[in-house]
């Protein structure tokens, strides 16, 4: 290999490396093994946000059914009027409690609606990160048929 082609290869490699380093910063709500595979809610929050001190707040609105007939599809809705940075849904009794984390950039409403799986009757917790602090709202959802398989 002559000098020119060596330089070319080096350039491509360094560009690829920069792209890799820049990636996680672009997608901030990216999936992280540590947070999502954590076995407890507090651990999951610690790994996702670097803190697990939470404050219950009535500004976090959590909508979920009182009784979910089918644990495979439980509609969950989280809404807040606070300037949210991130929203997470925790299902306490699931094998890995953290169900979802969403990144809320400026200009996007503090709102997430989705459908979750629930293994058994347990608390569903909505977590909103605002101003570096974590605010929560919880609700118990009764499950008639679990939805985690097994």
């Amino acid at each position: 290999m002559d000098r020119r082609s060596v330089l070319k290869v080096a350039g491509v490699v360094s560009a690829a490396a920069t792209a890799l380093v820049a990636m996680p910063r672009l997608a901030m709500a990216a999936y992280t093994e540590k947070a999502f595979k954590a076995k407890g809610g507090a651990d999951a929050l610690q790994n996702a946000y670097g803190a697990n001190a939470t404050t219950p707040s009535d500004q976090v609105k959590l909508k979920a059914p009182d009784i979910a007939e089918n644990g495979a599809v439980v509609p969950v809705e989280v809404e807040t009027d606070m300037q949210a940075e991130s929203i997470a849904i925790l299902i306490d009794g699931n094998p890995s409690p953290l169900a979802l984390t969403a990144d809320i950039p400026a200009g996007t409403k503090g709102l997430v609606k989705t459908r979750c799986r629930m293994g058994k009757t347990t608390n569903v917790t909505a977590v909103v990160k605002s101003g570096g602090k974590l605010y929560t709202a919880s609700k118990e959802v009764k499950v008639t048929i679990g939805g985690c398989g097994g």
């Binding site: 979802l100 984390t101 950039p105 799986r117």
Partner: peptide
């Protein structure tokens, strides 16, 4: 421009 991004666990429904 990214307006929303989120990460799912396996506990999100089919």
């Amino acid at each position: 421009k990214v307006v929303f991004s989120c990460a799912f666990n396996t506990s999100i429904s089919k």
